[in-house]
Design a protein around this nucleic acid. Structure first.
Lengths: 196, 196
DNA sequence: GTCTATACCCCGATAGAC
DNA sequence: GTCTATCGGGGTATAGAC
């Protein structure tokens, strides 16, 4: 027998889906709990049953990703610096943004300042760019060199930002990002297959 | 005789300076009129003497830039499509982001969603990217080609986003952006001198 | 477990004294 | 021209009925 009622975990996932959509289109600060509740035909108070706060919602949206990247960094730091390690880290970094389409990238772009304020030390998304770029560049690399590595890392963001109003699939956007990353920093994604 | 009192126009400029700083660091939505007033040691009401609304402040921050770009677009549309026209438009676009350092670029990055909502039709900053990229690409160019043009145009944003926490001057960031633009779209800034 | 009702605060904005 | 005082509303969050 199927039930008309939603399973326990579904409501939480629905809230996350709606919140991600609203945060992406209007921004975290401009999105109110009332808006999220209305779009789900539930009350504001119901949100507070599933999440302790508005911040808790946004944290839940990237906590899995944060944990994965922290694991990646931990692994990389236990390995000796080598071209192979760099290739694996770069490939993992890129594949992380493709999981679940480009929804997270779009969310991150629309909420850069909010993410900075909401995830300051916990190892937020922006801290990761710094730490991984350090892993990918030589210890004595000049700042200009580190900048290029970071620009290659963030080519996905550039492609997503630029693709607004253009008739392109996520795969095509990602292909442009991959190509751009390799142009900015030759060999950046040499080891990663271009298939998505 | 010098006066201790500020000249009339100074207060308005001071408000713009503080507002730009706060909007850039915390975002438009997260910045309140009270914060702006406190940082200037004036009252909230005093702000409303100089500006009709919070939106009016943010509009004043880029109205000059908007007018300049509208003029650029108007001029370009009156010219026949040619390599020379493209070179001039691309060069003008880039030099517009250097005026007054990279302050506007940083502001725009921190407030993408707010700018979209606040300047929807008036010819906001994001509308300009679309219209200028149309000028710079062939009329029958596929979306992927237009995307690359836009990515080249927004390489300044990429460089600024990536340079956070890096010991680089605005000139160095801009140099990286210029180089990247030409890598993404060969010859994009061929005609523009690289001196800043 | 999920709702209604409400507390409490700070927001942008205005009126009018000085 | 700049202030004090205040308004109406929406914000997040909570208390407690059901």
């Amino acid at each position: 027998m199927t039930h008309h009622r939603k399973a326990a975990g579904d409501r939480r996932a629905e809230i996350q889906r709606v919140a991600l959509s609203l945060f992406t289109s209007h921004g975290y600060e401009a999105t109110s709990m009332r808006e999220i509740a209305e779009q789900l035909d539930i009350t504001k108070a119901a949100l507070y049953y599933h999440f302790d706060s508005k911040e808790a919602i946004v944290h839940s949206l990237f906590e899995e990703r944060v944990a994965t990247i922290n694991g990646l960094i931990e692994w990389a730091e236990s390995q000796p610096r080598s071209p192979d390690r760099s290739a694996r880290v770069a490939a993992a970094w890129f594949s992380l943004t493709t999981d679940g389409g480009l929804a997270f990238a779009r969310f991150a772009i629309a909420n850069q300042t909010a993410l900075r304020d909401l995830a300051p030390k916990k190892g937020g998304p922006f801290d990761h760019v710094q730490r991984i770029s350090a892993l990918l560049s030589e210890p004595d690399a000049p700042p200009a060199e580190r900048l290029k590595i970071r620009m290659a890392m963030m080519s996905v963001n550039l492609a997503v930002m630029s693709s607004h109003d253009l008739d392109l699939s996520d795969s095509e956007i990602l292909a442009a990002a991959t190509e751009t990353a390799n142009l900015i920093s030759p060999g950046f994604l040499a080891a990663v297959p271009t298939t998505i």
